[in-house]
Amino acid sequence: MTTQPLVPPFTRDSAVQKVRRAEDGWNTREPETVALAYTPESRWRNRSEWVTGRKEIVAFLTRKWARELDYRLVKELWAHDGDRIAVRFAYEWHDDAGRWYRSFGNENWEFDSSGLMRARHASINDVPIEESERRYHWPLGRRPDDHPGLTALGF
Rank of each mutant, 00 (worst) to 15 (best):
S14F: 09
P148Y: 02
P144W: 03
S48K: 13
E107F: 02
L69W: 01
G25S: 12
T62P: 01
D24V: 05
P8I: 02
E32L: 08
N125G: 15
Q17P: 03
A15D: 04
A15C: 08
W44F: 07
S132E: 10
Q17N: 11
R20Y: 10
V74T: 08
V34S: 01
D83W: 04
D145M: 01
P144S: 02
T2C: 11
Q4W: 06
R29I: 00
N108R: 14
A122P: 00
A122T: 10
H121A: 12
E110Y: 07
G149R: 05
L36S: 06
R45Y: 09
I85H: 06
A86M: 11
H121D: 08
E130D: 14
G141T: 00
T151E: 11
W109L: 14
L153Q: 07
M117D: 00
A66S: 10
L150R: 06
A97T: 12
G82I: 09
P139Y: 05
E76S: 09
E130C: 06
L116H: 14
A90I: 02
A35S: 04
E41W: 07
T11F: 09
D70P: 00
E107A: 07
P144Y: 04
W138D: 03
E41Y: 06
N106L: 14
S114G: 03
E32V: 13
Q4R: 11
D96N: 05
P31W: 14
D13N: 14
V7C: 10
E107L: 01
W78M: 10
N46S: 12
L61V: 03
R67V: 14
Y71V: 01
G105W: 01
I85D: 03
R134C: 04
P148R: 05
R88G: 06
D13S: 15
L36Q: 14
S103E: 10
L116P: 00
S14K: 10
W26D: 00
A79Q: 04
S132V: 06
L77P: 00
T3K: 13
R120G: 14
E76V: 04
Y101S: 12
A122G: 14
T151P: 01
A152C: 08
S132R: 12
D146P: 00
K18R: 14
P148W: 07
E76Y: 06
E30Y: 04
L77C: 06
G98Q: 05
E30S: 03
S113Q: 13
F104E: 10
R135S: 09
E110V: 14
R45P: 00
A37T: 10
V7D: 06
P139T: 01
A152S: 08
W50R: 10
L140D: 06
T39I: 05
L6C: 07
R72H: 00
L140Q: 07
S42M: 09
S113E: 11
E110A: 15
G25P: 01
Y38E: 06
E131P: 08
P144G: 03
V16C: 09
R67L: 13
R72G: 00
W100N: 03
K55Q: 15
T39K: 03
V16Q: 15
P148F: 09
R84L: 05
